[in-house]
Design a protein around this nucleic acid. Structure first.
Lengths: 153, 153
DNA sequence: GTTTTTGCAAACCATTTGCAGGGTC
DNA sequence: GACCCTGCAAATGGTTTGCAAAAAC
């Protein structure tokens, strides 16, 4: 678990490196916090967690890094029906996010074939360039715990 | 075209009526402007257009009505890659929006079969409850006009 | 030593809200 | 006449920016 988090930080640091961005203490701290997030988070949550680790780090630095990472595609923004959050995603290729309506954790998935979407779009005469897909559902753990899905009515 | 707009206003007024909401001059004006929007719009665009028709109407009323209509599902919010806008949509059932990257106009479409999405979601063990899909592409008119798509490479 | 980053505070922008007066049912 | 709606102006909340000092390369 902890290695997972460290790997994550390493990967993020590598990404900064690759862009010629500097390795600084505030950035390392923020990346560490980011890597420890186990679900989509708001900017406020992130800044609060960062402040808990090191109160000297300002909001602005958090936002600036968040923006850099969004530029690299390492952080994305989710806007579900009631969701408005950022997610860390190390998966580099095109993917989507499924958020659990019970525990709030998110998982990425890929559509192995977007043909049915493309067909639907062609039906109105459009040529598809990009698509954004977000899913809300119940994750395996929460379902096993009896939440969601098979509730009688 | 003009009838289309009037029909649109009528439908919106009926929706307000159905919720026991009052028919007022500012609301009628805003609905008229809304019905005339031929593409997704920002709140600023909307308030500016409204102000042009009747400068006495305040921003707050526009926002309040926008919110009511969102509650009725008559206005939705689009958040594409570079998009952050509202759309008027009279289509009552579940649907999606395709926005043209050339002219900016949007069209609704429906997925006649979301099985491939459901399958992809099941692959990660999730049970799907809702999905949000947004498409960006080129509309038939713009493609015919030579924009997008068949540009060599 | 040069260039990038940082923290701070102020600026911003879209949106919401409190309130007293005015319009609608 | 009761209650809803309005405009206004002020409050809000998230995010960005200008700047001089500090840190990284």
């Amino acid at each position: 678990m902890e290695e997972r988090r460290d790997d994550c930080v390493l990967e993020l640091e590598r990404a900064l490196d690759a862009r010629g961005l500097r390795q600084t203490m505030p950035r390392r701290t923020i990346l560490g916090v980011l890597a420890g997030m186990d679900r989509p988070f708001t900017s406020t949550e992130l800044t609060e967690h960062v402040a808990k680790v090191d109160p000297r780090i300002g909001r602005a630095s958090v936002y600036r890094l968040l923006q850099l990472l969004r530029g690299c595609g390492l952080v994305e923004r989710l806007h579900g029906p009631a969701t408005e959050a950022y997610v860390l995603c190390l998966l580099r290729d095109h993917h989507h996010h499924a958020t659990c309506s019970v525990c709030g954790r998110a998982e990425t998935f890929t559509l192995e074939d977007s043909a049915s979407i493309e067909r639907a779009v062609e039906r109105i005469g459009y040529t598809m360039e990009h698509h954004v897909l977000e899913v809300v559902g119940v994750c395996p753990a929460c379902r096993a715990a009896g939440h969601g899905a098979e509730v009688p009515q």
